[in-house]
Simulated assay, not measured.
Amino acid sequence: MANIKSAKKRIKVIDKKTALNRVRKSQVKTAIRRFEEAVNAGNVEEATQRFQFAQKKISQVASKGTIHKNAAARKVAKLAQKLNSMNA
């Protein structure tokens, strides 16, 4: 356990940021899962809407620094590939 006041504060700050990052990552995973459910159901319109929502969530999380921008781009590209394979 930390004894120095600034170290105690850092522990509190880290705990808050960790909790917030966990929430954000969960939101991204949920958005991706819902998109994949729509793809598996074969519903192109719903999949397109869910793709846009997932893309938005991923971009927001990347802009906040929770995930790296290249990781976000990779996730979006993978989802776009699935969506395009439905249309083809």
Rank of each mutant, 00 (worst) to 15 (best):
A62Y: 04
V44F: 14
N87P: 03
S63Y: 03
E36G: 12
S59V: 09
A72Q: 02
K5N: 12
Q60A: 00
S6D: 01
K57W: 03
A72V: 04
V23C: 03
Q52T: 05
Q27L: 02
Q49P: 12
I67C: 06
K12D: 10
A41Q: 07
A54E: 08
H68A: 02
I32H: 07
L83N: 13
V13T: 08
N43A: 07
Q60C: 12
A88T: 14
G65Y: 04
F35N: 00
M86K: 08
E37Y: 09
A7V: 11
A62I: 05
E45C: 04
K17N: 14
M1E: 12
M1N: 12
T18R: 01
S85E: 15
R34V: 08
K57R: 08
A88V: 11
R50E: 02
K25N: 15
V23Q: 11
V23E: 10
Q81C: 07
D15K: 01
N40V: 03
N3Y: 10
K8S: 02
I14A: 06
I11G: 07
L79F: 12
R24I: 00
Q52W: 02
K64S: 07
A2F: 05
S6K: 02
I58G: 06
K16H: 06
K25Q: 14
A71W: 00
T18K: 11
N43K: 01
I32E: 04
F53K: 07
Q49L: 10
V44Q: 11
H68R: 11
V39F: 01
L20C: 10
T18Y: 04
M1K: 01
K75S: 09
Q52I: 12
R34L: 12
G65K: 06
L83T: 12
M86I: 08
N40L: 15
T48L: 05
K57S: 09
K5W: 14
R74N: 14
R24E: 14
Q27T: 01
E45W: 02
A73I: 13
V61N: 04
S63I: 06
N3H: 15
R74G: 04
T18M: 03
T30H: 07
Q60E: 00
A31W: 00
A54I: 08
N70T: 13
F51I: 11
N3R: 15
E36T: 04
A71F: 00
K29W: 09
D15G: 08
S26Q: 07
N40Q: 13
V39T: 03
V44Y: 10
N87I: 15
N40F: 06
A7T: 03
A72D: 14
M86G: 11
Q81I: 03
E46L: 02
S59M: 08
E46R: 11
A71I: 14
F53R: 09
Q27D: 02
V13Q: 02
A62M: 01
K25E: 15
S59D: 07
A72G: 12
K16F: 13
M1Q: 02
K56N: 08
A71L: 01
G42L: 15
K9H: 07
S85K: 15
V28W: 08
N43P: 09
K12C: 04
A54R: 05
S59P: 05
N70E: 15
K12S: 08
Q49W: 00
K64W: 11
R22G: 12
R33D: 05
